[in-house]
Design a binder for these strands. Structure first.
Length: 493
RNA sequence: GCCCCCAUCGUCUAGUGGACUAGGACGCAGCCCUUUCAAGGCUACGACCGGGGUUCGAAUCCCCGUGGGGGCACCA
């Protein structure tokens, strides 16, 4: 691929939450920019005042920051081509619209919403394609001028050629050809004086010197409009890539609101900040989404930097991809296992604190190696490490009874173990294991019967990190107290 | 109804005319390891949508079907 520096932009509209599709587009933008030592720009497309959502831009920025996708220019950072919010660039759009009018590549349209709707119904009835019928395109320019001067409400539409064809290249798909007769005279400037995406995005891309446009495939249908606007104004054309959409897990249809809610019920989510709260790591999420639409032959576990090294946009896959949360779990667990203890401890701590535990850092650092390979999400640290920070445990007495043993027999086992441990200077792994193993052998019991009782006694749960390592961290006094308590529970069962 | 895009294991994908007995990953199943749960190791199962061409040779190129997806707003 060509490695001369690119300028790419991630241009979301602040109309909702940041989802996986956006994150992946931003990631590809970032990878391409870094790979070529170019710039990655964040631009906010807020020309729709009706759909504006307060806080959406903040969530976008938080999401990007959390993922580690850093932009070089943006609304909060500034940059040489600002402002980076479309609402702050209105004069520019008005000028370009005027220029299009001057070049006879656009026309004012006075059609009312009512009339347009009637036309649409008619077309629907006649099974025709749904598009503007060209009424105002025929208007005498002087007449149109008079009506504008008189203050009549109007929009500006692009004058799409009636004949011939439009050709444009998408790097993932090659050349695409449209018959101009199938194309529409789309609105460029709304009657409120604000531009539509079509004009605003093209003008910004031109003024911000964007070289590569990476966007969702939902833009494929307005692709010919966009290249025609660019060509009408004589601007240089960027290189285009239209990314496939994400399909719901079943593979049938794209992610919907309903499906998003379904995922949340399942302990997953398609929203970036939710994933963070659920205990997913940026590494895991990034590794997961980078591979949806792009493939590597082998070694698919990658850090962001490794992705930068390997990313090749000519290898992107244009077909839609079904979301697979099991794979997110896999990548998240894998990256957790790759972290060093201090790093992981720092990430786990907020989850433990959030669950109400007061966390001792030194202790947590010792716990981390024990639980690291058991975590799928950071959130899993709560069941695996919580008991280390509890003052008192109340195990279910039922759980203290070993398989094939009576409560009384189980109590006897616990009592013997308690005596063995009491005689020891400490309950370190090295000190505690040999005598307890000897006890298992002499008693003729199964290891899991003895250790099972102790596990529940010491950790309060049937599933836990390794027993001896856990006891060592918990410490002699607490371990003995907990086993004593278990004996009590079993004898009064 | 119209326009456009897409098509390899259940899923994400590698594959750019001969190196394909179609590779990897997830999941699933089995085994090993093991005091629980994991992790790890090994093994198994599993795909070129269909039909026509082009070619000595096609998963790969072309056409047609079929299936899937996106769009057809004064939303992005």
């Amino acid at each position: 691929m060509n490695l001369s520096p690119v300028r790419v932009r991630f241009a979301p509209s602040p109309t909702g939450r940041m989802h996986l599709g956006s994150a992946r587009t931003a990631l590809y933008d970032y990878l391409l920019a870094r790979r070529s030592a170019g710039q990655f720009i964040l631009r906010i497309e807020d020309t729709d005042r009706k759909r504006f959502v307060e806080g959406a831009e903040q969530e976008l920025r938080d999401g990007l920051r959390w993922l580690g996708i850093q932009y070089d220019e943006g609304p909060d950072l500034g940059g040489p081509y600002g402002p980076y919010r479309q609402s702050e660039r209105q004069e520019s759009y008005q000028q370009w619209a005027a220029e299009l009018l001057r070049r006879d590549q656009a026309f004012p349209c006075f059609c009312s919403a009512d009339r347009l709707e009637k036309v649409r119904q008619e077309q629907l009835k006649n099974k025709q394609s749904l598009r503007y019928d060209g009424t105002c395109r025929q208007l005498d320019p002087a007449e149109a001028q008079r009506r504008i001067a008189a203050g009549e409400k109007h929009v500006i539409r692009f004058k799409m050629p009636y004949e011939g064809e439009t050709r444009a290249v998408d790097t993932m798909r090659g050349e695409i050809v449209w018959q101009n007769k199938d194309l529409d005279d789309s609105v460029l400037m709304k009657s409120d004086g604000l531009p539509t995406y079509h004009l605003a995005a093209m003008a910004d891309d031109y003024e911000m010197k964007i070289t590569h446009v990476i966007r969702g495939s939902e833009w494929l249908s307005s692709f010919p409009l966009h290249v025609n606007i660019i060509r009408a104004l004589g601007w240089p054309e960027p290189i285009w890539m239209h990314l496939s959409v994400f399909l719901k897990p079943s593979g049938k249809g794209k992610m919907s609101k309903r499906e998003a809610a379904e995922a949340i019920k399942d302990g997953h989510s398609i929203f970036v900040t939710d994933l963070k709260d659920l205990g997913y790591t940026p590494e895991g999420v990034l590794n997961w989404i980078v591979l949806m639409g792009w493939g590597v032959a082998e070694d698919d576990v990658m850090s962001l930097d490794q992705m930068v090294q390997r990313f090749d946009p000519t290898n992107l896959n244009p077909s839609p991809a079904a979301i697979n949360f099991a794979k997110l779990d896999h990548f998240n667990g894998t990256h957790i296992r790759l972290m060093d203890a201090a790093d992981l401890a720092g990430r786990i701590k907020p989850f433990l604190v959030g669950a109400g535990f007061s966390v001792d850092d030194a202790k947590l650092l010792k716990i981390v190696p024990l639980i690291r390979e058991r975590l799928v999400t950071l959130d899993d640290s709560i069941p695996f490490a919580g008991f280390f920070f509890k003052d008192e445990l109340t195990p279910d007495p039922q759980d203290l009874i070993a398989k094939d043993l009576t409560p009384a027999q189980s109590a006897g086992v616990a009592q013997t173990a308690l005596e063995i441990l009491t005689d020891l200077p400490d309950v370190s792994h090295a000190q505690a294991e040999p005598p307890l193993r000897r006890f298992v052998e002499q008693s003729g019991l199964q290891p899991n019967q003895v250790f099972g009782i102790l596990r529940v006694a010491v950790t309060g749960q049937k599933v836990s990190p390794p027993l001896f390592e856990s006891m060592e961290i918990i410490g002699r006094e607490v371990v003995l107290a907990r086993i004593r308590r278990a004996v009590e529970l079993l004898t009064t069962f």
